[in-house]
């Protein structure tokens, strides 16, 4: 059993390499139940790598990832989802030749709670009415914004306690970015903890309570979002002065 104060997710000295290149050089951070925590950083800083390591998609070289008191290294990716980590991957990873509904249905693959599943469809459609209008449309023909909604909706359908989001704002018009972030806050208020990876530091720091700045595989700055927005280094590098 975990103690009441223990973080939901604790990453300790995580090292990940691609061949000879060290993508993560021993990073540590925590996410507590109910929080939105953001990892910001430039391209290639290791943000997506961090999420992929948490989901078990790439091997960990050193360090530990503890979720809900369990060491995730012992679990394959599909089991990690069942433990309660949803992941909307970079580039959205939707199933392009299947319909919107089939995409959502696939996310319930390992779930056996039929009544709850129906409620969750309702919830996704309430959050994203656009998806309900297009539920029989082939997902590959959706616009970028709708595909992102679908990726978030699909992550919701796996019903994790922790949701990993990889650049939900990527390639979207500003108004859609606003929309997605509004929904993320709603999802969070309903009880889902969120770990958000973003290049759009401006938006990310608005919704998150704490943040970490990742630079070439190391965490250089961390703190509450208020502190980060005032930090001169963060301001200059990520918020445009």
């Amino acid at each position: 059993m975990m103690t009441p104060d223990a973080p939901l997710l604790s990453v300790q000295d995580l090292v990940v390499s691609y061949g000879n290149i060290k993508a993560l050089r021993g990073i540590s951070f925590e996410v507590h139940e109910g929080e939105i925590v953001t990892l910001i950083g430039a391209n290639g800083a290791g943000k997506s790598t961090t999420l992929r390591a948490i989901s078990g998609l790439i091997p960990i070289e050193d360090g530990r990832i503890i979720f809900d008191g369990k060491d995730l290294r012992a679990y394959p990716p599909h089991r990690i989802v069942e433990l309660g980590i949803s992941h909307a991957p970079e580039g959205r990873g939707i199933f392009g030749t299947l319909t919107v509904m089939e995409n959502l249905k696939l996310a319930t693959y390992a779930r056996r709670d039929k009544d709850e599943i129906q409620k969750d469809y309702r919830r996704v459609f309430d959050l994203f009415p656009r998806l309900e209008e297009r539920k029989n449309q082939i997902a590959g023909t959706l616009s970028g914004g709708e595909q992102q909604m679908l990726a978030v909706g699909r992550a919701l359908m796996t019903r994790g306690r922790l949701m990993l989001l990889d650049e939900p704002s990527m390639g979207l018009a500003p108004i859609l970015v606003q929309e997605i972030f509004r929904v993320l806050q709603e999802i969070n208020q309903a009880g889902t903890t969120i770990l958000l990876v973003e290049q759009n530091a401006h938006m990310a720091l608005q919704v998150a309570s704490r943040g970490y700045v990742l630079e070439t595989g190391s965490i250089t700055v961390q703190g509450t979002t208020q502190a980060l927005t005032k930090d001169p280094k963060v301001k200059e590098a990520y918020l445009g002065g």
């Binding site: 078990g56 599909h78 989802v81 249905k105 696939l106 996310a107 693959y109 390992a110 796996t158």
Partner: peptide, 22 residues
């Protein structure tokens, strides 16, 4: 349901794992 997992592998193997397909 199992067979839908097969389709998800064709579409995107990483995403398939992220919806808990073994």
């Amino acid at each position: 349901a199992y067979g839908r997992g097969i389709l998800s592998i064709r579409e995107d193997e990483v995403a398939a794992e992220l919806v808990s397909v073994n």
